[in-house]
């Protein structure tokens, strides 16, 4: 590839190659504080669909060790998003060292709060917001659960803010570094944010999961208990590698569900969510 960039996020090392310079320059700037990797777990390639297209109507197709055959190419202006999507795809499909939960995670005093839910539940924004308070941000997309110790392993990639969350976080964290605003992506407006410094400096520091929340944005504040069987089922759906990990994944997830208290929370504002999180953390964690 003409342009290349190596980066390590938590335990995973990526090599990003691109036919164009711009997405690589953006990544170098945003990942400036992350360690470079001297090995590669996954390769992500941003490639022009055809040679001429690179000049006439530039758009980046996402390729790599793992790829989705039907993934539509993104306009070059969204090259950074394409690279991030490519990195997520490699993790989701290829990672085997830990159980992956599609969840965000924050840490306090060595113990982790894990938040999982569908897209739009606010788990990413909540983790970013708590990461600005007295929590250490561990990741907004994947919570990695060690299958032997049960520890949560940090994966503090760039925080991917969508739509209303962009303005909200710019207000909460005016000093944070943000990437370019990408409008009209398949998920609406997207802007990446560099996680707070402790998240990057301590990205090898694991934490013991202590509370699992299923947040849901847009409803009257409420807390609900969930049966362990339902928690288990929802986490198998939230895991991208549960089936691939076989018996080890089953043992790890069963232990997780048996040991970690879980609640569903509804909220309509960041302040409500923070109050509920703190209340449940004090009660249960």
């Amino acid at each position: 590839m003409r342009h290349e960039f190596h980066v390590r996020v938590g335990p995973a090392a990526f090599r990003i190659g691109s036919d164009w310079r711009a997405p690589i320059d953006q990544m170098r700037a945003l990942y400036a504080d992350y360690p470079a990797a001297d090995f590669t777990d996954f390769t992500v390639r941003l490639e022009a669909a055809r040679f001429l297209r690179r000049f006439l109507r530039p758009s980046a197709a996402i390729n790599g060790d793992y790829r989705l055959p039907d993934a539509a190419p993104l306009p070059l202006g969204q090259g950074l998003l394409a690279a991030e999507m490519g990195m997520n795809l490699q993790m989701a499909l290829g990672w085997r060292r830990q159980l992956i939960l599609h969840a965000s995670a924050v840490e306090r005093e060595g113990r982790a709060l894990i938040m999982t839910g569908a897209s739009g539940s606010g788990k990413s924004t909540l983790s970013a917001m708590l990461g600005q308070k007295n929590w250490r941000f561990m990741g907004d997309e994947f919570a990695l659960i060690d299958m032997v110790s049960g520890d949560a392993v940090p994966y503090p990639r760039l925080i991917s803010l969508k739509n209303e969350a962009i303005a909200a976080m710019q207000k909460h964290a005016p000093d944070a570094r943000f990437g370019p605003l990408m409008q009209g992506t398949p998920k609406g407006d997207i802007r990446h944010m560099v996680p707070p410094a402790p998240a990057i400096v301590r990205m090898q520091a694991r934490a013991k999961p202590a509370l699992l929340l299923f947040p849901r944005f847009g409803y009257e504040p409420a807390v609900r208990e969930i049966d362990a069987g339902e928690v288990f089922m929802r986490l198998t759906q939230a895991s991208t590698n549960y089936v691939a990990l076989g018996e080890a994944g089953f043992e790890a997830l069963t232990r997780f569900v048996q040991n970690i208290p879980a609640r569903a929370i509804d909220y309509q504002s960041g302040e409500q969510a923070e109050a509920l999180v703190n209340q449940l953390w004090d009660q249960l964690a």
Partner: peptide, 15 residues
């Protein structure tokens, strides 16, 4: 079979 009770449900992992 690995059989793990989980409150009102039971998990069965079929090796």
């Amino acid at each position: 079979l690995i059989i793990q009770p989980l409150d009102i449900m039971t998990l069965i992992y079929h090796r």
